[in-house]
């Protein structure tokens, strides 16, 4: 059943400061609305609980891609189309570029924002695995100022984030300089465009040593749909870091990943399938390192 739109309040404050003031004045009362590709679906299916919405979509303060020497800073209001168009992101953060390219259809990418993807906090969302692997940080803003935290501390549980009711996600900062790393991302779902993933993995590794002894100098793995929130796979990373790429290492990685994965059964897939496929993806990546 669709909601009665007359029941919802929606205003467009003129500036970011004006939005923050309203959030601070009545914490928890107002909900930000950016591209609307999550909230409007909730509205149209009668699931939208929040009745007072604040527009972010028009705020140029939140829509930017700033390239600096050691990081690319992305405003929360940046759309997936903006991300796909950025040459700097395509070159320095290819996993994020790739994730943006399969986040829904072209029309969804024209509207949906990176900030909305992270704040909606679905464990299956497409950008988080890449951001976790790259070790991104997020800057949150309120009328009291800003605070910055590792993105890996942003998700607290199923659809729960570190955002206080008076805060907005302002910037996602992603370190660059990965030219020595092999990078991998794969989404497994019914189809890439439109379909939410059953499971997805982003991974990157630096391989040291010569042709006869290839050692994994560093590895970073982010996953979607392996837990109640997007996760960095620390146990799997530890199991292979500093190891030769061989059968033993591949087995150790699979075991460690299975140990830390806590996927769920839902309409899209089962926990068993998810854990198994995630291990297959990791194995595929590890084997590619010696190719």
């Amino acid at each position: 059943m669709r909601s009665d739109v007359g029941q919802f309040d929606f205003v467009s404050p003129a500036s970011l400061d004006a939005v923050l003031e309203r959030l601070a004045a009545e914490p928890g009362v107002h909900t930000p609305l950016a591209g609307g590709t999550e909230l409007m679906v909730a509205l149209n299916t009668g699931r939208l609980q929040q009745h007072s919405l604040l527009n972010l979509q028009h705020l140029s303060e939140l829509r930017f891609i700033r390239v600096e020497a050691e990081a690319i800073h992305i405003g929360s209001g940046t759309t997936f189309t903006d991300i796909r168009r950025s040459e700097a992101i395509a070159i320095d953060l290819p996993l994020l570029s790739q994730a943006a390219s399969w986040t829904g259809s072209v029309a969804n990418q024209n509207r949906g924002t990176l900030g909305g993807n992270l704040c909606n906090a679905s464990p299956a969302a497409d950008s988080p695995p890449a951001l976790l692997a790259y070790g991104a940080t997020v800057t949150l803003v309120s009328s009291h100022g800003t605070r910055t935290l590792p993105y890996s501390d942003f998700h607290l549980g199923y659809k729960r984030t570190a955002l206080r009711p008076d805060e907005l996600l302002h910037t996602i900062s992603v370190p660059t300089g990965w030219s020595g790393y092999r990078q991998y991302i794969r989404k497994v779902g019914t189809r890439n465009a439109q379909a939410i993933s059953k499971v997805a993995l982003a991974a990157m590794a630096r391989v040291d040593g010569d042709r006869t002894s290839r050692v994994i100098g560093d590895i970073r793995i982010g996953a979607a749909s392996l837990a109640d929130r997007p996760v960095r796979c620390a146990a799997a990373e530890a199991a292979v870091r500093g190891k030769l790429v061989n059968e033993t290492t591949v087995r150790a990685a699979r075991t460690a990943l299975a140990g830390e994965a806590k996927p769920i059964d839902d309409i899209r897939s089962t926990a068993t399938y998810r854990a198994h496929v995630a291990a297959n993806l990791l194995e595929e990546f590890l084997r590619s390192l010696v190719g």
Partner: peptide, 14 residues
């Protein structure tokens, strides 16, 4: 720009 009009609230097209 291509958008799905079922997901755009009226106020955003002002």
């Amino acid at each position: 720009v291509l958008v799905n009009s079922c997901l755009v609230p009226a106020l955003q097209v002002n």
